[in-house]
């Protein structure tokens, strides 16, 4: 176990508003970590800082590869960060809607393939091979998330839960070391939720670390090795699920002042 991602005093300001305030976090390789907190606590903002969509105002994002070489993620463009091995899904699903399910996953292979414009036109054997490999890997990923039989449907024709799973398959196609899931269980029924839990476990079994934003506390408590709790951009608690469950600050954040007396 080594620290895959170290976040040091990360802050993010929007004008005069501080959305994230000196946030510290560590994710070890192969761990499942959950990030929870009330709405507007800054969880998705944190994801956006991590994936290069926002440039953090202050603080450092340190990324360590399996060979123990470290580098900072600050200032990298989003596609470079994906290349480093961070892949994400979106809270409000962002699929390539008019493309097929399979094509969505194939696009995830973009940063692990190398075909150039000239190569695409001339199609030498290396390109044909790469294309074949892309299709094989994408199909395998679709089978894994249970979408292989709708591979040629338009992505926006899929039901909601399937679209969420497709987003996960697409993110896995980029071969991540850390998978960021932004409310993957939102809008899912209990059956779909269980399937999702099994899927996240199986992804984790492949030594892919998972960082999860989720409001379904049961799911979080069952899955996570470690939980971070954000409120108004500040870290108010962190630790193992049992510790978080009984933490007064967390209960106050979620239930308000009276919640303490009833709990």
């Amino acid at each position: 176990m080594f620290p895959l991602l170290t976040v040091n005093k990360l802050s993010m300001d929007f004008g005069g508003i501080r959305a994230i305030d000196k946030f510290n976090m560590r994710i070890n390789a192969g761990e499942i970590v959950a990030l929870i907190g009330p709405n507007g606590a800054g969880k998705t903002t944190f994801f956006n800082c991590l994936t290069g969509i926002y440039q953090p105002t202050d603080g450092e994002l340190l990324w360590t590869l399996p060979n123990r070489s470290s580098r900072t993620l600050n200032g990298l463009k989003p596609h470079r960060i994906t290349e480093q091995g961070l892949a994400r899904t979106f809270q409000n699903i962002r699929l390539f809607r008019s493309m097929t399910v399979l094509e969505n996953v194939m696009i995830g292979r973009h940063c692990r393939t190398a075909t150039t414009i000239l190569g695409a036109v001339l199609r030498p054997p290396s390109v044909t091979r790469e294309e074949k490999e892309t299709i094989e890997i994408s199909f395998a990923l679709l089978e894994r998330v249970g979408l292989a039989d709708v591979a040629h449907e338009r992505a926006d024709n899929l039901p909601y839960g399937a679209q969420r799973r497709l987003e996960i398959a697409r993110a896995l196609a980029t071969e991540p070391l850390l998978l960021l899931l932004d409310e993957p269980a939102a809008g899912m029924n209990p059956q779909e939720g269980q399937e999702l839990e099994a899927l996240i476990r199986s992804i984790n079994n492949d030594q892919i670390a998972v960082l999860l934003i989720e409001h379904d506390m049961q799911l979080v408590m069952r899955l996570a090795d470690h939980i971070f709790v954000l409120e108004y951009g500040r870290l108010i608690a962190e630790g193992a699920p049992e510790k978080i469950r009984n933490d007064p600050a967390v209960i106050r954040a979620y239930l308000g002042e009276e919640g303490i007396h009833h709990a």
């Binding site: 809607r97 696009i107 940063c111 036109v121």
Partner: peptide, 29 residues
């Protein structure tokens, strides 16, 4: 035709569909 059915063509279409998701998939916008 060859460009359209290639890694490059797919990236163009991804750009058309959703710029943010396209970058998050590792495509250099």
């Amino acid at each position: 035709n060859r460009l359209q059915n290639s890694r490059i063509g797919r990236a163009w279409q991804a750009l058309r569909e959703d710029e943010i998701a396209c970058q998050a998939m590792g495509i250099d916008k």
